[in-house]
């Protein structure tokens, strides 16, 4: 069986990461931004797990990615609550409307 080197996984991670960044940067929908965050975290996770197999990280990489997943879930819950609050106040979830702190 021919192996897929670490580079392949890292490339996938990079794509996920960049897609996440672009998603965050372009979506005006607050929940879309959240999804971008999830993608970014996921890209990082792919790297962690890849290094855990190919690199010196070992089990530590997997555990780190576990923590990332769990904390991402927590972050999603809080962010969602914030979005709901935002919606209650602005009656929309367009993040461009959240520019009260404009200089």
């Amino acid at each position: 069986m021919e192996g897929v080197g670490i580079n392949g996984y890292l490339a996938v991670g990079a794509v996920l990461f960049v897609c996440g960044v672009i998603c965050m940067a372009t979506k005006r929908n607050g929940i879309g931004v959240l999804m971008g965050v999830e993608l970014v975290l996921n890209g990082a996770n792919v790297n962690f797990v890849a290094f855990s197999k190919f690199g010196p990280l070992g089990l530590d990489g997997q555990i780190a990615s576990l923590f990332v997943i769990v904390l991402a879930a927590a972050e999603a819950a809080v962010a969602l609550a914030i979005v709901l609050n935002f919606y209650n106040n602005h009656l929309t979830i367009d993040v461009d409307r959240a520019n009260e702190l404009q200089g």
Binding site: M24, A25, T26, V95, N99, Q102, G103
Partner: peptide, 16 residues
């Protein structure tokens, strides 16, 4: 002050 646009998405661009 001009840089402080208050737009989340721009900030993300800045970070990137």
């Amino acid at each position: 002050q001009v840089v402080q646009t208050g737009k989340l998405r721009q900030y993300i661009m800045f970070i990137a």
